[in-house]
Simulated scan of single mutants.
Amino acid sequence: MAPASFHHTSNTVCVMDASGRLGSTLVERLLQRGYTVHAAIQHHDELQFNGLASDNKKLKIFHSDPYDYQSIIDALKGCSGLFYTFEPPKDQPSYDEVMAEVEVRAAHNVLEACAQTETMEKVVFTSSITAVVWRDDRKSTASDLDERHWSDINFCRKYKLWQAVSKTLAEKTAWALAMDRGVNMVSINAGLIMGPDLSISNPYLKGAAEMYEDGVLVTVDLNSLAEAHICVYEDISSYGRYLSFNHVINRHEDAVKLAQMLTSSAPVLPQSGEQDMKIIQQRISNKKLNKLMVNFEGGSGTDENSS
């Protein structure tokens, strides 16, 4: 039996927000795969696509604001798929309680717009592993964390883990609406996205020391993450949530390396043989996505998986 992939009725998809690192990578990948792409960006972000748009007849730029319902509807017109990622506005990159409301409202508008778009066949919603790992009982659970687990909102509020609050509430809002309106949705819960602009101020890293000790501090490179999105979109058997990461930070040297990458002032720790040898047991599983990816032909020829 051939692997289950299928052609959507239209080869047109929308990427929103297309100006972030994941969004712009998805736009490039989808164009390479022959899709016509509606790149939905907010007003201040058009520069990066100007060159690309004039070269590529299959790329159409839309200005859409996640709070302006009509602008979302316009960007989705004629699309059979949507890749949706929320990027905090550039003028307010940090997460707090207000950002959670903003992100939830955006998710609500976008899913509502998808329900009103007759051509829409599948939505790939980018969420985060921070919507999975934060809970009171996390030390005592016998099994690995996986796509069935949700972060506990009250726990996250108590410890001011605002990005986790935001991602969890937005994803739950999207799922509730998708189910209510009959929108076919899958989510990708991403690990910490690696890249040159990763810094210590990244809100994902709030609680990183605890994640590390719990064996759930995971990272993903942009290429793998983009391929995971396209794979779950194209595979007819995909459903529900998928955890996407390709590296677990569970050794002392990995943690030190990450710290040094994030801040030049990270301490160079003395070699204390014993601590360096300790490997923290991984407590999180991405088996569900890996199974799906086995037959996926990414077509980019780069394999950077390091686990």
Rank of each mutant, 00 (worst) to 15 (best):
Y84K: 07
T36K: 06
D45A: 13
L59D: 03
S54E: 13
D68V: 15
L47V: 07
Y84I: 06
K57S: 05
K60C: 14
E97R: 11
G81F: 06
L76Y: 04
P88M: 10
M99T: 10
V133R: 13
C114I: 09
R105N: 12
E118G: 09
Y69S: 08
V104A: 12
T119F: 00
K122A: 14
R33F: 00
T130R: 03
Y69K: 11
Y95D: 14
V132R: 02
I72V: 14
L111W: 02
S94W: 00
V37P: 00
L47R: 13
Q116E: 14
C79K: 03
Y84L: 08
H44K: 10
S94P: 00
C79W: 08
Y95H: 15
F62Y: 15
E103P: 03
T126C: 12
T119Q: 05
L111E: 04
H108K: 14
E103M: 14
L76R: 05
S94Q: 11
T130V: 15
V37Y: 01
V98T: 12
K57C: 03
A113W: 07
S80E: 05
H43P: 08
A39P: 05
Y35L: 00
A75D: 03
G34E: 07
V132N: 06
E121V: 15
M99D: 04
V98M: 11
Q70H: 12
P88T: 14
Y35I: 01
Q42C: 03
P93E: 13
E101C: 05
T117S: 13
S94N: 12
A40P: 02
G78I: 00
I129E: 10
S71F: 01
E87V: 15
L47E: 09
L59W: 01
S64H: 04
L82I: 05
V123T: 07
Y67P: 00
V123S: 04
M99V: 06
S64Q: 05
D55E: 15
D68E: 13
V104H: 02
Q92F: 07
K122E: 14
A131P: 04
E101L: 07
A131E: 06
V104F: 09
Q92H: 08
Y84P: 05
A107F: 10
E112K: 14
A115Q: 08
H38M: 01
E46V: 04
W134R: 13
E101R: 07
M120Y: 01
D96N: 15
K122Q: 15
V102F: 07
T119I: 02
P89V: 08
L59I: 02
I72T: 08
K58V: 01
F86G: 04
A39S: 03
Q70S: 11
H43V: 11
H108F: 09
P93H: 10
A100F: 06
F86T: 10
K58N: 15
V98I: 12
E121L: 11
F49D: 06
G51D: 15
K77Y: 01
F86Q: 10
E97G: 15
A39C: 00
I129K: 03
K77W: 00
P66D: 05
V123Q: 06
A113M: 11
A113S: 13
E118N: 11
L52N: 03
K90D: 07
T117K: 04
